[in-house]
Design a binder for these strands. Structure first.
Length: 396
RNA sequence: GGGUAGGUUGAGCAGGUGGUGAGCUCCGCUGACUGUAGAUCAGCCGUCUUCGACUGUGGGGGUUCGAUUCCCUCCCUGCCCA
């Protein structure tokens, strides 16, 4: 099979509603996968090592996760994708029966920094665990993902940190990403698994256009927009999305913006027309003591919470807010108690997934840009909450 | 009572046998975190008018140009012997 022809798709995607409004391309849809239906726009919690850190599958269902992301690179070196395959595949291994998307290891090309070398054939990693040399190719990345049995596999790509790279470096990495994308398509065979291609191109509009055309021209099941989880400004991100998404306007496939997950990033990108997201941010930030609330965020390690009897977020239905006070969570963090990680992660993921749910209903109800104005003004998840919140306490 | 080892910034320590002790780890305070080498990392953590300055090695006294260091004395703590 060549890179330009493919059999029937493992997934289906339909757009159910499009926001009516000036300057918005927001849409709500439904993604059908071998392990169930995903309503979009959706946020995928990240479970790198076949676990969303600190949570079990029951917790995940409770916070409302309908699909999670797991990681090709990490699972291939530990415990090994062959082992997972022998043990019944990733879903069975981790006891998660809803959809899984596996990232290709492309991001580790960036995140592992000096532990890797890139050439046309692929990437040579030095294992972050024991230093072993690992030859990673597009074909191998696909083989791993097929062994894992995720619902959606992703091409191996070569992201480059936009702000730290020359135009030439970005252009080369992008062109290589396109060649690797074709190799992934040729290698991919599993009929019950979808394959997404990845657009790169840094912050350069013309490179992004070129990359969008190249990737959208191939028979992928979905289109990823990569390379934007770095240190660009929100304006730069929006500019890239406003270049890429209009070129996909007539394209029936889902659009997935890789690696962004702050509430404002999500809102902006949905507005720009993106359907799928993943990010480590809400979970990592939770483990480090920062809890997202509609007014902003609370750092539960701050001394002011030690005597605060209120829940983290009034009205939140998560495991944390249902039963525990800010004072209790603040205590758990100080005492280095493991429960802090679970409760905080449950809250931030509940917050994020509830946020996405409210975006979906706004789009479906035809009130999208307007009904989100409050949220936009509230700066959810940003650092402005402290003062507002504190003011209320003092005046009480 | 005798002997002995000690008393260093919230805690625990390092160092210092005459030439400016603010060094470490906890604790504490604050910030960061975006396709997870992250239950991590960074800054602050004696005082002040903070790119600097001042004070500080149990108390008091002595020797000295100069003492945390040497001498005397007192207080406190651990251990050993009576």
């Amino acid at each position: 099979m060549s890179a330009t022809e493919r059999g029937s798709s493992a997934i289906g995607f339909e757009v159910l509603a499009t926001a009516e409004g000036e300057g918005t391309r927001a849409r709500a849809g439904r993604l059908q996968t071998p392990h169930g239906i995903v309503e979009t726009p959706i946020f995928m919690p990240v479970g790198t090592n076949a676990t969303v850190k600190a949570l079990d599958p029951d917790d995940l269902r409770e916070v409302g996760a309908s699909i999670i992301l797991s990681n090709t690179y990490h699972l291939s070196i530990r415990p090994g994708h062959e082992r997972i395959e022998r043990l019944g595949g990733l879903h069975h291994f981790m006891s998660w029966d809803r959809p899984i998307l596996t990232d290709s290891g492309g991001f580790q090309v960036v995140s592992l920094g000096d532990l890797r070398r890139i050439d046309e054939e692929g990437v040579t990693f030095r294992s972050h665990l024991d230093g072993t040399l690992l030859d990673y190719t597009p074909e191998y990345a696909i083989a791993i993902q097929e062994a894992l049995g995720s619902d959606i596999a992703v091409c191996l790509d070569q992201p480059v940190p936009p702000s730290a790279s020359s135009r030439r470096e970005v252009a080369e990495a992008t062109a290589r990403t396109h060649r690797w994308a074709e190799r992934c398509l040729v290698a991919h065979q599993r009929p019950d698994q979808a394959l997404f291609g990845i657009i790169q191109g840094g912050l350069e509009a013309d490179l992004r256009r070129e990359s969008t055309a190249a990737i959208a021209g191939l028979p992928f099941d979905g289109i990823c927009i990569g390379g934007l989880a770095g240190d660009e400004t929100p304006q730069q991100r929006r500019a890239v999305l406003d270049v890429v998404v209009p070129l996909l306007a007539a394209d029936p496939r889902p659009r997935y913006l890789m690696g962004l997950g702050s509430p404002m990033d999500l809102l902006d990108a949905v507005d720009a027309g993106v359907d799928m997201f993943d990010s480590v941010l809400p979970a990592r930030v939770a483990r480090n003591g920062t809890l997202w609330v509609p007014d902003g965020r609370l750092n539960l390690r701050n001394a002011r919470f030690l005597d605060d009897p209120r829940p983290v977020q009034e009205g939140c239905t998560c495991r944390l807010c249902r039963s525990f006070s800010r004072a209790y969570l603040a205590h758990l963090f100080r005492a280095d108690e493991l429960l802090a990680f679970r409760l905080a992660t449950c809250h931030n993921l509940t917050f994020t997934l509830d946020f996405m749910a409210s975006i979906r209903s706004a789009i479906r109800a035809g009130t999208f840009p307007e009904s989100m104005r409050t949220l936009r003004a509230s700066r959810a998840g940003t650092n402005s909450a402290e003062s507002a919140d504190e003011g209320r306490v003092n005046s009480a």
